Deep mutational scan, measured.
Amino acid sequence: MQRVNMIMAESPGLITICLLGYLLSAECTVFLDHENANKILNRPKRYNSGKLEEFVQGNLERECMEEKCSFEEAREVFENTERTTEFWKQYVDGDQCESNPCLNGGSCKDDINSYECWCPFGFEGKNCELDVTCNIKNGRCEQFCKNSADNKVVCSCTEGYRLAENQKSCEPAVPFPCGRVSVSQTSKLTRAETVFPDVDYVNSTEAETILDNITQSTQSFNDFTRVVGGEDAKPGQFPWQVVLNGKVDAFCGGSIVNEKWIVTAAHCVETGVKITVVAGEHNIEETEHTEQKRNVIRIIPHHNYNAAINKYNHDIALLELDEPLVLNSYVTPICIADKEYTNIFLKFGSGYVSGWGRVFHKGRSALVLQYLRVPLVDRATCLRSTKFTIYNNMFCAGFHEGGRDSCQGDSGGPHVTEVEGTSFLTGIISWGEECAMKGKYGIYTKVSRYVNWIKEKTKLT
């Protein structure tokens, strides 16, 4: 034993070699072989497995989906700052455009905790909710729209109204504003409101030439003092309507412009014939205590009207009353817009006519005020429907199939267009061939041609 100890002390290297040989010859039971080890760690190889990531292109799944990435790591994937920024906006807080917040056709661009709407022409605001041009839906104005110097929408209202708090709607500024039905039992019968379409306001006024200088022999019209197929109006439903009495009662109609003036057809009036105007009328054979009678003290036909040349060209006249009318729910003026808007309103496509005229061709006159909704007829169809001249200051309205029309005794009465609950004068009943005849239409004086003249002559002093 002493000898062994001496050998170990003198030859430590020998001992180490012996131990190493023993270990190498022993069977290893701690580690699995290569094949079995792979069965336990069965993990798919990654895209760049075996390579240094710093030297390969980034992978979106590896960089940002398996674990949260930084902007720089995302930049490695896209290799483009702009594309990385677009991805980053949604990656950080989701897609803010998912709810489609942009209105009126706006395009949404996502941002971090926010979004941006790219608005089409005519709109602005956070969600493109603000109209900035009158060309689109009248700028959301209830009545009139004008573009300011910086191309912003400025709404306005006709006389007797003021802008509401929203700067879009119009509200009454006087007790009985024009064009409004205020009798409670008839307010439910107000005709369907007309909503502004998209309009090209630059070209809204037709490029028409008034044929002022045409000389033409007097034409022989049949029954051209021209509501057939209409309905009984309720008291106060058309408070701007008046009836004219002269040699015979209810020979023509008219509309209240203001307390002192009536507008009617020029062919209705004769110099030297006494005319009485009755406002607030409903049943011409009954006294309903809503009527107001006034005498006409002055007749002003349009300066281009000449019955000797043509009885229905420039067929418009103004009547001055001896005493002002007292405005109330049964006696209310009709609204008159400017030339541009009167023309736009007419193009809405349908209007209402009213009167006490004959209820059928050569038949009896109506006792109760009649009204009828009539569609506008395109000019080409209008011209083809008659052998008589249709001037540019006239328009056609009615039904091709016949059966409904204005008729004798309705002449001078109103053709009105309702705009968001307020009625505007767009025409004056003038003439036609018979009444409600198939293929024939009622012919009306186009008020847009005469609004400046009306307003100039009827100013209240």
Rank of each mutant, 00 (worst) to 15 (best):
Q2F: 08
V4S: 13
V4F: 13
S11Q: 08
P12W: 07
G13A: 10
L23C: 11
S25A: 10
K39F: 07
L41R: 04
L41A: 05
P44N: 13
R46T: 01
N48P: 03
L60I: 13
R62S: 04
E67Y: 00
T84R: 03
Y91L: 05
N100A: 06
S107R: 10
D110E: 12
D111W: 07
I112C: 05
N113H: 10
Y115G: 04
C119I: 01
P120M: 09
P120Q: 14
F121C: 06
G122T: 05
N127T: 11
L130E: 14
T133P: 10
D150L: 11
C157A: 00
T158Y: 05
G160C: 02
A164Y: 04
A164L: 08
A164Q: 08
E165W: 08
E171I: 12
P172W: 04
P175D: 06
P177T: 03
P177N: 01
T194Y: 14
T194H: 13
D200W: 11
S204C: 06
T209V: 15
I210W: 14
I210Y: 06
L211M: 12
N213C: 04
T215L: 07
F221I: 13
F221K: 12
F224K: 14
T225V: 12
G229I: 13
G236T: 05
G236L: 05
P239A: 04
P239W: 01
W240G: 01
Q241V: 10
V242A: 05
I262A: 03
V263L: 10
H267R: 06
T271W: 08
G280A: 04
E281Y: 08
E285P: 10
T287C: 07
R298P: 00
I299D: 03
H302V: 02
N306P: 02
Y312D: 02
H314C: 03
A317W: 00
A317M: 04
L319Y: 02
L321V: 06
L321F: 00
L325T: 00
V331G: 00
T332A: 10
I336E: 00
E340D: 15
Y341N: 13
T342S: 14
N343G: 09
F345P: 02
L346M: 07
V353P: 02
V353Y: 04
G357P: 07
R358T: 13
H361L: 11
K362E: 13
S365K: 15
A366G: 11
L369T: 14
L372H: 15
L383W: 12
R384T: 14
K387H: 15
I390P: 10
C396K: 02
R404N: 06
S406W: 14
P414D: 04
H415D: 00
V416Y: 11
S423P: 02
I428A: 00
C435M: 03
Y441E: 00
G442R: 10
I443C: 04
W453G: 00
W453N: 01
T458H: 02
